[in-house]
Design a protein around this nucleic acid. Sequence first.
DNA 1: TACTTCGTTTAGTATGTACTAAACGCACAC
DNA 2: GTGTGCGTTTAGTACATACTAAACGAAGTA
Lengths: 181, 181
Amino acid sequence: MNENLNAARGHFILGLSRISRFWGFPKAMGAIFAALYLSPEPLCLDELVIQAGVTKGAISTNVRALERLGMVHKKDRIGERRDFYSAETDFWKIVKTTLKEREKSEFDHALRSVDEALLMTQTPDLPSEDAELAAFYQRRLKAIGSFFGKLDKLVNMIMTFDDLRVSAIERLLGTKGDEGP
Amino acid sequence: MNENLNAARGHFILGLSRISRFWGFPKAMGAIFAALYLSPEPLCLDELVIQAGVTKGAISTNVRALERLGMVHKKDRIGERRDFYSAETDFWKIVKTTLKEREKSEFDHALRSVDEALLMTQTPDLPSEDAELAAFYQRRLKAIGSFFGKLDKLVNMIMTFDDLRVSAIERLLGTKGDEGP
DNA sequence: TACTTCGTTTAGTATGTACTAAACGCACAC
DNA sequence: GTGTGCGTTTAGTACATACTAAACGAAGTA
């Protein structure tokens, strides 16, 4: 294979590895996805070991994580014992799934945390000075709780976006050089 | 001070610490912000040492990181040598600043990375098989580059939101129990 | 049966990073 | 000058976590 193409793929793999880490994922996940994304054919684990530059154990673990996020898909082949994987090319779908898998539970946790703190401030029979402080706490906790609630709603909105709405957004943001997979 | 209020604050501090880590910040940052957010008066470093439960060095480092993100503000007092800090209560403003500070540079990097890989694929005089692969690489790289570009535009849009537009969004998302600071 | 060829799991290791503890520098007070 | 009260910086440490290497298991083949 042409050396420049290999170099391009290597560069891309490094780039996605970094992005992966930035978004809180293992960098091997980014590397594996990048390798699959730049392959016309599904790849087996051993091929990923070569291209992504990590050992088979790590490939095994991370490729399953990618599958849970809907970022890669297992492709079974008849008369073939090995597992082959290919990359999802619909990035908006990936965003939706990832938000659902990761952010959702964390938002819930955050909201619950605030609500619990709010409950604790509701103590009756406080001396006037403490009552004032309790009221202050309650105002602030309600405010941040409302903010988290809005973020949560925003994420929910995005998660329910269908293709029509995504196209609308894409048009809004301007579609320049993208083509299909 | 009332024990329940202390417990509520502790609970809230733990909650924000966790969210902070989830979003890729040191958990001390979340703890410090939480302590300041639940204080009617600005706090000095030593008070933050007590409330956030980390040493002065960590407070010093993280409170400055928070200031860079516009999440806390230094409040100077006449005839007072100590630094006092208070929390920003406008969360949309915080989101905007954080996006500007952190995501922006990372998006730029991602876009550049893809462009560079794209350049490397543009080698002339390839044998037909490689030329086919090169064309494939270019299609995929352009597609992901376009996606990153759209995300970038989205972030830019959010960053330029003024108060009017934020209110519009808030109305869209439903405003239930939030009150001013 | 024994021998491959896969993917998974586990035990150990390396790496990054946030933290602590302590030294430091600075400004003011005495 | 010496001392005190600040914030900052640094050297070292602890911790989380992603990875490697190797053992393991399962499923097919001789």
